[in-house]
Amino acid sequence: MGTKPVIAVVGPTGSGKSDLAVSLARRLDGEVINADAMQFYRGMDIGTAKITGADRRGVPHHLLDTLDITQEASVSDFQAQARELIADIHRRGRRAILAGGSGLYVRAALDILEFPGTDPVVRARLEQELAARGSAAMLERLSAVDPVSAGRLSDARRIVRALEVYELTGRPFSSFMPRREYFQPAVQVGLEVDREVLRERLAARVHAMVDQGLLEEVRRLDAQGLRRCKTASRALGYSQFLKVVDGEATVEQAAGETIVATRQFARRQLTWFRADPRIQWLDWQDPDLVEKAAALCL
């Protein structure tokens, strides 16, 4: 019998992905791999709603707390780590269950998706050419070797990146675009939400984070270098509460901004996941959710 498929639990923030992943792991003898980029960071616990030790209910969790607050998260690094973990979990006869709302990270683990390398010397030379000649000339040069990317790109940095990839690989940047094709057998379970209920739940969750000490967490991480990391410092809640630390906003204002930003993020996540026809959607509040999800994963 072949290896059973990788499981991914996806959906918007606040929909209960972590809880379902744990329940599935207990039901199917599995282990959970975190696919939420912000939960890689040590110390970012309250603001990311990181699952607590007690809530893990004895289920092994991987790729939580793997980065210092000053390190940048990398999709390509995550891809390598996640695939290694999936292979190891399957070798041991258990089920690998990805859980997280970072759509690109989920796809990096599941789909055929290549990340071409980079070369600082080539990049620096191309950036010098950009400064000297302008983006229109660079775009014209790109159109000669990669018309598909040239038609899609307008940002100067991405034009430079496309030229760098062509120079390093001899392949057009567009050839590295992701395809909806699994790297290995997979099942994606999506949590279908009542949007109005989710809106209220996200607001309540932000207020709970404030009560749990989000401001103190942000102050502590700020002292450890939070602002030096573009990824971490822009995380939901953290960027808003840094304004409180700086005296530019009250706690109430920061909480209000965080609620708005979190709701917008949830809408973007839904748009992203809805575009993938392979996801099998289940009602997040169905009393038989775990049984139905488990049945999809056999």
Rank of each mutant, 00 (worst) to 15 (best):
Y238D: 04
F176N: 06
D19N: 05
F78H: 13
A131V: 09
V206K: 04
L168F: 11
E192N: 14
L142F: 10
E129V: 00
P287Q: 06
I33V: 13
E200D: 07
Q269F: 15
P172T: 08
V145T: 02
H62K: 08
I51V: 13
D45E: 14
A232F: 04
T258A: 10
R199D: 13
D119Q: 05
E164T: 00
R94Y: 03
E216A: 14
R268Y: 13
Y41S: 07
P5H: 14
L104D: 13
Q264L: 12
A275H: 11
Y182N: 15
Y182S: 14
G101T: 09
Q71M: 08
Q184W: 05
V189L: 15
I7E: 02
A156F: 01
R274A: 14
D19E: 10
L64K: 03
S135H: 12
P287N: 02
M177N: 12
S175V: 04
R278D: 11
Q184S: 13
A254L: 02
T262H: 00
D36T: 15
V218N: 02
Q81F: 14
A266G: 10
L298A: 15
A137Q: 07
E216Q: 11
D68K: 05
F241N: 04
G101P: 01
R234L: 01
I69H: 06
D36W: 06
R267K: 14
Q184P: 00
T70Y: 06
V193P: 12
R152G: 00
R267N: 12
G170S: 12
G103M: 04
E140S: 11
Q224K: 13
D286L: 09
H207M: 11
E164L: 05
V32L: 00
G213C: 08
L202D: 03
V206G: 02
G256E: 11
V148A: 11
R199S: 09
L139K: 09
A136R: 13
R125C: 02
